[in-house]
């Protein structure tokens, strides 16, 4: 089990985050499409921060995990445009990355 986790952690988190994305989308869309768009934008910002933290390190598995979240979120978005979801997620990533890269956000790291 431990061996499996260490060899396939990216795939494991891809699946877990995809399920979380699906649940978040169902939950957010139950309120309104606007809430769903805000949540996906904020999630994108977390993704941008994650990619910034992995700057100059191994990043490919993290792209896979973020794509997993997006797939899950799109699958769960039953009310609202999926194109807008993709655009806002990418914009969120760019915005989050930009804020960290320019030094507007400098936070604690472990």
């Amino acid at each position: 089990m431990v061996d499996f986790f260490f060899k396939n952690w990216a795939e494991f988190f891809f699946f877990v985050i995809m399920v979380i994305g699906f649940i978040f989308a169902l939950w957010a869309t139950s309120f309104s499409a606007v809430i769903s768009y805000i949540v996906v934008f904020l999630s994108g910002m977390i993704g941008g921060k994650l990619l910034y933290d992995r700057k100059k390190k191994l990043t490919f598995p993290y792209y896979i995990i973020l794509i997993g979240f997006l797939i899950g979120y799109m699958a769960g978005t039953y009310y609202g445009s999926r194109k807008v979801v993709i655009i806002l997620f990418v914009l969120g990533i760019l915005f989050g990355y930009h804020l960290c890269n320019k030094g507007y956000i400098r936070d604690i790291s472990f």
């Binding site: 904020l42 977390i46 956000i105 936070d107 604690i108």
Partner: peptide
Amino acid sequence: KMWSYGLLFGLIIAFLTNGYVWLILPGG
């Protein structure tokens, strides 16, 4: 130092629960 993951996750949870759950994770 602030913890942006905690703050962003707190915001997401606030939107998802309509503000009924306060996730207060400001930093360390």
